[in-house]
Amino acid sequence: MQPLTNRSKQVDRSPMTFSEKLYLPSIAKGMAITFSHLFKKRPTIQYPEQTRPFSQVFRGLHVLNRDEEGRERCTACGLCAVACPAEAITMEAAERMDGEENLYREEKYAAKYEINMLRCIFCGLCEEACPKDAIYLSETFAPANFNRQGFIYNKQELLIPNPLTEKEAYEKAAGGRVRKPVNE
């Protein structure tokens, strides 16, 4: 195979010269190299206090989107669950009753909506499959948990904050990816 870089070198197997057998010059060289690293900039990010900025297209934890009036967009059509290659999504549909028009955008809604974050591979196919702009992958990731049950996120945990009543929290949760009502 042709070398991909010009950095490969033939291994030198000739016997060591006297100065090499002394070891000390090469040890001094190596120690100078390690000493120079004392003054180098450290790439460490102090995690809980500092975080690395995510890309605009980062695919993290899911959010269930709301429309401009704060109504849930999901109609429990099940396309996301069908599209999901890891079979992480389960849902149960319910019919909207009279007087619930301010809660749900259409006549049908998801009464139960669960995503198992241990199964999820964060591929974003659910987001592509959704015809209602209801599910998005946000710029956060699932925090650690002590038991498996804690990784199954229910609808209340997934729903984005209401853009009318909690505007700041909504903006924070939406990040750069969620299509906001303003953009429509």
């Binding site: 000493f35 690293h37 004392l38 450290r42 790439p43 460490t44």
Partner: peptide, 14 residues
């Protein structure tokens, strides 16, 4: 403590 600190600094860690 110093050993771990020196090791860290020589390896570009903290």
């Amino acid at each position: 403590y110093a050993e771990r600190k020196v090791a860290g600094f020589l390896q570009d860690r903290l």
